[in-house]
Design a protein around this nucleic acid. Structure first.
Lengths: 147, 147
DNA sequence: CTCTTATGCTTTCAAAAAAATCCCAATACG
DNA sequence: CGTATTGGGATTTTTTTGAAAGCATAAGAG
């Protein structure tokens, strides 16, 4: 399961993505609109900034905004940043690999399945970006039908 | 990520599956062979028993054994039993559904993606069983080549 | 019937992680 | 300068996880 922290991160990123054209957005505004505890949100945004996903400006007219194109920020990147491994066990993780305590990886049936699970997840999470979360398929469909 | 508890559960189930023909297996034996803390393992096996996956017999010649065919016990079942939801958020869970605090499900792009992720996971985890963990593809391949 | 061998069940404890809060420093702008 | 806003660590609270202890219960052997 995703932690509250990464749920908040996604909500904040979606909000920022929608407001992208309006310039910097205040933490307080996101906090209020998305009902995220203010100080917790501060930490989250800071972490996203350190990773280069967001940027910020202090003082009047300041706030947070994207440091890179929301269409370039994958869900997998955000999840790894905030929650760590996407894999179900460290022994199948690409970015956070750790050897199993008590299992021979060459003969572990569980590992084989978890690698398949990992790949299925990555196939989706590495493709989908923050931009995809706002431009939803259903919305696009609706537009198609209308147009 | 899977908890230690469900890792232990899978290891124990794999061990029991291999020893199925030898009759009941002692908790202590599993604990020793798989290096799982004894008392922790007791609780895990008990939980698996309550779910009908395992059965047990007390006294001399007692121990744990399968209550149903290992080929009928899916990984998804075990994971839900021990760790809870397989989905990344409760709002997309089939067995542990809970409404999102602050998002309109009909217009949540994140939810759409997480449903896809859930389905990709279930496709694998509902198919694979404990029996599959022991009878590994590579082993079968080796047998094919030999035979 | 009672001794031995096992599991059953509740409770408790400790450690770690998650979530939230607090404080003050740094920076930008007018 | 003074106000608005983020920076960033320290701290606290809560929840979850991992593990252990202890006594209860059941089954079989003799």
């Amino acid at each position: 399961m995703l932690s509250k922290k990464s749920q908040y991160a996604f909500q904040a990123l979606m909000y920022l993505s929608e407001k992208e054209k309006d310039g910097p957005v205040l933490i307080a505004e996101i906090s209020k609109k998305k009902k995220i505890p203010l100080k917790f949100l501060e930490n989250i945004l800071l972490e996203l900034k350190k990773a280069g996903i967001l940027e910020s400006k202090k003082g009047k007219g300041g706030g947070y905004f994207f440091g890179k194109d929301p269409g370039q920020v994958t869900l997998a990147t955000v999840m790894r940043l905030i929650d760590g491994p996407i894999s179900l066990l460290p022994c199948v993780s690409l970015y956070f690999y750790e050897k199993c305590a008590n299992c021979d990886e060459k003969h572990c049936g569980l590992r084989d399945v978890l690698i398949q699970v990992r790949d299925a997840n990555l196939k989706l999470l590495e493709r989908k970006t923050i931009a995809d979360l706002s431009l939803r398929p259903k919305t696009l469909q609706a537009l198609k039908i209308k147009g």
